[in-house]
Simulated assay, not measured.
Amino acid sequence: MLEIESLNKTFAAPSGPVVALRDIRLTVGRGEFVTFIGPSGCGKSTLLKIVAGLDTVYEGSVKLNGERIGGPGIDKGVIFQEPRLFPWLTVEKNVAANLSLRNPEVRKRVGELLELVRLQGFEKAYPRELSGGMAQRVAIARALLRNPDILLLDEPFGALDAFTRSHMQEVLLDIWQRSKTTMLFVTHDLDEAVFLGQRVVVMNPRPGHIRSVLDIDLPYPRSRTGASFQELRALVLGEFEKVEKGPAVDVGAGI
């Protein structure tokens, strides 16, 4: 469904070119949930922007459903750390975005999505009246409006408190299981990566590249306190610790 081959991304800087991503190779199947973890500066967000079509200047091949990604489109939904809602619009109008709620099909779809994200009864509320978790659920509903093939989430729960974050992880898994949408999820939280993903991609920095891809062979729902979860968490932590202790790589190499 998503095929990334020999992806390289270089940024121009006053001190010379900086390699952000080097030789990224990854295939993601339809309906799969993949999480990405790694230290700051390892290129996780840059990779997501390329898949989203927000950055089209790179070397290599990035294809969605066999077609090269050439820019943003309704086949790709994006969720950022901040909900980025329009403060002057109600919840239902934020979800509808540029589509009219006077259209019966749009109104029906918005209603279905608000039920999916557990926000029935808040259709007429404004963003200022919502908690952080509720606002992020509105953003997720908006991203799903046009039935995207893939949903890209860049640390969407990073600004939430621990209780709300845990709740939102449960909500997201429910949305994923019911919508069958492919999800790529970037996080700095190791527990979150293991709790959500069917696979965890561990990335190295300087330049950003994939160190390892670990299968999380646990059924849903998952218990963070279970022995199997803790074993897999330790496995991912071991890979992550190798990333932190690994030698720095010359960012100018390979250009």
Rank of each mutant, 00 (worst) to 15 (best):
His167Val: 15
Asp191Ser: 12
Pro156Cys: 06
Thr181Arg: 06
Val194Tyr: 01
Arg199Ser: 01
Ala193Lys: 00
Leu153Asn: 05
Leu153Ser: 09
Val186His: 02
Thr182Asp: 07
Gln177Phe: 10
Asp154Arg: 04
Val171Trp: 12
Leu196Gln: 00
Leu190Thr: 07
Leu153His: 05
Thr187Lys: 03
Leu153Glu: 06
Phe195Ile: 10
Phe163Val: 14
Leu172Asn: 01
Leu153Ile: 06
Met168Ser: 06
Arg178Gly: 13
Leu172Trp: 06
Asp161Pro: 04
Pro156Gln: 14
Ala162Pro: 11
Met168Trp: 07
Trp176Glu: 00
Gly197Ser: 13
Leu184Asp: 00
Met183Thr: 05
Glu192Pro: 02
Thr164Cys: 05
Gly158Trp: 12
Ile175Tyr: 03
Leu153Asp: 04
Leu160Glu: 04
Thr181Pro: 08
Trp176His: 06
Val194Leu: 05
Gln169Pro: 07
Val194Pro: 01
Glu155Leu: 11
Arg165His: 13
Gln177Met: 11
Thr164Lys: 06
Met168Gln: 07
Phe195Asn: 05
Pro156His: 04
Glu170Ile: 09
Thr187Asp: 02
Arg178Pro: 15
Gln169His: 07
Ser179Gly: 11
Leu173Ala: 15
Ala159Gln: 12
Glu155Gln: 14
Ala193Tyr: 00
Gly158Ile: 08
Trp176Phe: 12
Asp161His: 15
Lys180Ile: 07
Val194Asp: 02
Pro156Asp: 09
Phe195Trp: 12
Glu170Cys: 09
His188Pro: 07
Leu151Gln: 05
Leu173Tyr: 11
Leu152Thr: 04
Leu172Phe: 08
Val194Ala: 09
Leu196Met: 14
Leu153Phe: 09
Thr182Gln: 05
Phe163Glu: 15
Gln198Gly: 03
Ala162Tyr: 11
Ile175Thr: 08
Leu184Ala: 07
Gly158Ser: 14
Leu172Pro: 04
Leu184Ile: 10
Glu192Trp: 10
Leu160Thr: 07
Gln198Val: 00
